[in-house]
Design a protein around this nucleic acid. Structure first.
Lengths: 332, 332
DNA sequence: CTGTTAGCGCTTTCAC
DNA sequence: GTGAAAGCGCTAACAG
């Protein structure tokens, strides 16, 4: 009579134990992925019972005792900030392959961060991967009550580790390529300068250009978007440089289209064009833009290394970098 | 002496209650978003204590009793299947705005689905949104032990509701546009025909073409990608049609590039070109492809309507549709 | 190896 | 209004 309790909701481990004729503890052990001590026959009985009942553990309940949820928060800006979709496809796949799940937090502004902080959703994740540059490490640690925060937005304080592409390498290669081809002057089309990554990127370009004796004729400010690239190219301040360096491929596409339009038959091109990000788009024939990229696999591998042992990762004091490289295409 | 327990981990509701000098039950009620009965002064004391301690409720523990986690699973294929990023940006934002979070499940194949089924991660979500066409409704319901499954992949059984763009409308408009411009013959470049959505899409094109007296000269099979569009256009079977209908914008881009290359000066174009998806890419000057799209806001609104009251949504027996429309651009 | 016993942090009866 | 107490489903001691 009492065995008919738990009518409608899904079977619990207690049901499995009862059916198998063992204690809950034994059932728990038999079902555990780790190798807990259980006699062979009881394990078999438990497994059979679980199968028969269609038992699925309640991971929330489990996490209450184990203090681990197998949930990773990925914090991004608006999603079109993903300069590279492939990266996230790879990342999510890899995270899943180590048995964890990804919970996406889209944080389009500083206020939203405050919002989450106040309402406290999605705490208790095992770790947080921060791509959004609206969040600093301290805020995120506070937000998730966790020290396992990996900064991927170019920011880092002393306490949280970070992984960043080493942009200096690719930029040096690109500028060297230009110099080798006789470029003496250039324009720089930039993105949101509020971002520390962007500031560093611009500084790298300037340093390399100075080193190679390339004169900076103008610095046009965009926002990484195609439209902002178009606007820059149409701006009255637009100079007549030997080369144009854009801090995003989308902006380079905009620049390219404006000039295709203005000088439909210009052949050879009026300037050498360099983008940044190495979007898969640049493999399209209409936008064969030389760019700067990095090995997504290596990058994700570092992230996974962090996830599988955050403490060890942080131990390596310095922030981890992944090298970038220049990818020549038709526009240079 | 005992008040110093709970040293390092985050404060629990018991800590708050203790500091406020009330019982845990009172603290729970005072902190609840619903209006539970608590005297004003105790509520104030609790709120103050919570603030002071930086208390954040453990949502997992809460969900153990409330049976609701405020977690929505979004199940996708590989991420580049997102024919439209904007959609997911919008979707995640909206879901967050109703206080829920998104957990992303990337399921690249049927085997992966089985995998999840066995390991049973991420159960107990409140609802699942299925974009992946590797999962049928029954599997997903089983997978999540939940009836609150919304099919967005074009599949549906009798039990789970669905939302789909009504492609017939936009396709009819596109074919009508072609017919009005004197198109008498056409080629069709298709995607993965294993997908039911694609099958329906193709059927729609054929029906409309028949209706308008447009002859189908060839049906080339691609996989939605740019490269497959290029391949189709280079195929020996490529006819000389008045128009080319592609079931994705990316394929149309590939077709366009191949022909730009083959006939650099062809002006007017040798055929009218129609894509599908209305990618934001088609706003780029280099790919001004006429396409078929739908209102993402309306689509997401329907999804949200489901999320806020799944039972009511399912009540309206029929599957919900969102109209598509033709978006003319330079290529038609 | 096994079962009993405590909880994890929170909400919710149910009496007062 | 309030608090004591009973769980939610699971795992982790601790004795046997």
């Amino acid at each position: 009579m009492d065995s008919s309790r738990k009518r409608r909701s899904s079977p619990t481990i207690a049901d499995v134990a009862e059916l198998a004729g063992v204690s809950r503890a034994i059932a728990s052990r038999a079902l555990s992925s780790e190798n807990r001590p259980v006699s062979a026959d009881k394990r078999a009985r438990v497994l059979e019972a679980a199968e028969k009942l269609g038992f699925k553990p309640n991971l929330l309940a489990r996490s209450l005792t184990t203090k681990t949820v197998n949930l990773i928060a990925v914090i991004v800006n608006h999603i079109h900030d993903f300069s590279d979709l492939d990266l996230f496809d790879l990342l999510i796949g890899e995270i899943q392959s180590i048995g964890k799940q990804v919970i996406f937090l889209r944080v389009g502004s500083v206020e939203r961060i405050e919002d989450f902080l106040r309402n406290g959703v999605a705490y208790h994740v095992d770790a947080a991967l921060v791509f959004s540059d609206f969040a600093d490490a301290a805020s995120v640690r506070k937000m998730f009550r966790s020290d396992d925060v990996l900064m991927l937005n170019g920011m880092h304080d002393g306490s949280s580790p970070s992984v960043v592409p080493d942009e200096a390498i690719g930029i040096a290669e690109a500028v060297a390529d230009a110099a080798a081809k006789g470029v003496r002057s250039a324009a720089l089309v930039t993105g949101r300068v509020s971002s520390p990554v962007e500031q560093q990127r611009i500084a790298n370009y300037k340093a390399e250009m100075a080193k190679r004796g390339i004169r900076l004729l103008a610095e046009l400010r965009g926002d990484y978007s195609y439209q902002s690239g178009r606007l820059a190219a149409q701006s009255p301040e637009w100079p007549t440089p030997d080369a144009v360096f854009c801090t995003s491929d989308a902006m380079a596409m905009g620049v390219m289209d404006v000039h295709r339009e203005a000088f439909p038959d210009s052949n050879p091109e009026r300037f050498r064009l360099y983008g940044f990000d190495n979007l898969s788009l640049t493999d399209f024939e209409a936008y064969p833009i030389s760019s700067i990229g990095y090995d997504k696999g290596a990058y994700v591998a570092e992230i996974l290394r962090f996830l599988s042992d955050p403490a060890a990762f942080a131990d390596g004091r310095a922030d981890v970098t992944v090298p970038t490289f220049f990818v020549p295409r038709a526009t240079s």
